[in-house]
Simulated scan of single mutants.
Amino acid sequence: MSIEKYRGYVVEGFAKPVEGGMFESLGRVSRDDNVIAESDVLESCARYGDAQARAIQWAQEYVDRLEDPR
């Protein structure tokens, strides 16, 4: 799991091992200990770190939409 603070939110990236040596990426956004959003599986990646990075990217984009919903 990878955890970062981003624009006042906590963004988390998860890499869940699956068959074939792949990792599914999943993200979560929270603030003040309240979960605001959790992703479904975003994609499958061959590397653990890539799956976490993709999930963090999703979470940051989610926060950006919350803060500037244009």
Score class of each variant (00 low, 15 high):
residue 60 Q to H: 12
residue 36 I to Y: 10
residue 4 E to T: 02
residue 58 W to L: 07
residue 24 E to G: 11
residue 5 K to H: 05
residue 29 V to G: 02
residue 11 V to W: 00
residue 57 Q to H: 06
residue 6 Y to S: 15
residue 44 S to L: 15
residue 11 V to G: 05
residue 68 D to R: 12
residue 4 E to G: 06
residue 1 M to I: 07
residue 50 D to M: 07
residue 7 R to Y: 06
residue 11 V to K: 04
residue 15 A to T: 08
residue 34 N to D: 14
residue 58 W to G: 04
residue 42 L to R: 02
residue 13 G to S: 08
residue 10 V to Y: 00
residue 12 E to H: 08
residue 27 G to K: 06
residue 22 M to P: 03
residue 14 F to L: 07
residue 65 R to C: 12
residue 70 R to H: 09
residue 10 V to G: 02
residue 2 S to G: 10
residue 27 G to I: 06
residue 52 Q to L: 07
residue 21 G to W: 00
residue 8 G to K: 06
residue 7 R to T: 12
residue 30 S to F: 06
residue 11 V to H: 00
residue 61 E to L: 14
residue 17 P to I: 01
residue 61 E to K: 10
residue 58 W to Q: 02
residue 36 I to H: 05
residue 32 D to K: 09
residue 53 A to H: 11
residue 40 D to S: 13
residue 34 N to C: 11
residue 23 F to I: 01
residue 70 R to P: 12
residue 30 S to M: 15
residue 28 R to Y: 05
residue 37 A to S: 09
residue 24 E to N: 12
residue 69 P to S: 11
residue 8 G to D: 02
residue 2 S to K: 14
residue 33 D to G: 12
residue 56 I to P: 00
residue 65 R to A: 15
residue 61 E to D: 14
residue 13 G to D: 10
residue 66 L to I: 11
residue 8 G to F: 06
residue 30 S to K: 15
residue 12 E to I: 14
residue 9 Y to E: 10
residue 34 N to Y: 10
residue 14 F to N: 07
residue 15 A to F: 02
residue 53 A to L: 12
residue 44 S to H: 12
residue 7 R to G: 13
residue 46 A to R: 11
residue 40 D to G: 05
residue 66 L to C: 11
residue 59 A to C: 10
residue 9 Y to C: 09
residue 26 L to F: 13
residue 38 E to A: 11
residue 35 V to Y: 02
residue 49 G to D: 15
residue 2 S to P: 01
residue 17 P to Q: 03
residue 26 L to T: 13
residue 9 Y to W: 09
residue 26 L to P: 03
residue 25 S to L: 03
residue 49 G to H: 05
residue 11 V to C: 01
residue 21 G to Y: 01
residue 9 Y to Q: 06
residue 35 V to R: 12
residue 22 M to F: 13
residue 7 R to W: 06
residue 29 V to E: 03
residue 19 E to S: 13
residue 57 Q to A: 15
residue 44 S to P: 02
residue 45 C to G: 06
residue 15 A to N: 01
residue 27 G to M: 07
residue 51 A to W: 00
residue 44 S to N: 13
residue 8 G to P: 09
residue 30 S to E: 15
residue 67 E to A: 11
residue 8 G to A: 04
residue 30 S to H: 11
residue 32 D to N: 15
residue 40 D to A: 12
residue 51 A to N: 05
residue 36 I to S: 02
residue 57 Q to E: 14
residue 60 Q to W: 00
residue 62 Y to I: 03
residue 46 A to Q: 08
residue 16 K to G: 01
residue 25 S to Y: 00
residue 13 G to C: 07
residue 34 N to L: 13
residue 14 F to T: 05
residue 57 Q to S: 09
residue 25 S to E: 02
residue 59 A to S: 15
residue 37 A to P: 00
residue 36 I to P: 04
residue 42 L to Y: 08
residue 58 W to E: 04
residue 53 A to F: 04
residue 49 G to V: 05
residue 57 Q to I: 07
residue 46 A to C: 04
residue 53 A to G: 03
residue 37 A to H: 06
residue 6 Y to V: 15
residue 65 R to E: 15
residue 11 V to Q: 00
residue 4 E to C: 06
residue 32 D to W: 07
residue 18 V to Y: 08
residue 4 E to I: 13
residue 66 L to H: 02
residue 58 W to C: 07
residue 5 K to I: 04
residue 67 E to G: 07
residue 34 N to G: 00
residue 53 A to I: 04
residue 14 F to W: 04
residue 39 S to V: 13
residue 32 D to Y: 10
residue 70 R to S: 15
residue 2 S to Q: 14
residue 40 D to Q: 10
residue 55 A to K: 01
residue 1 M to E: 14
residue 45 C to M: 13
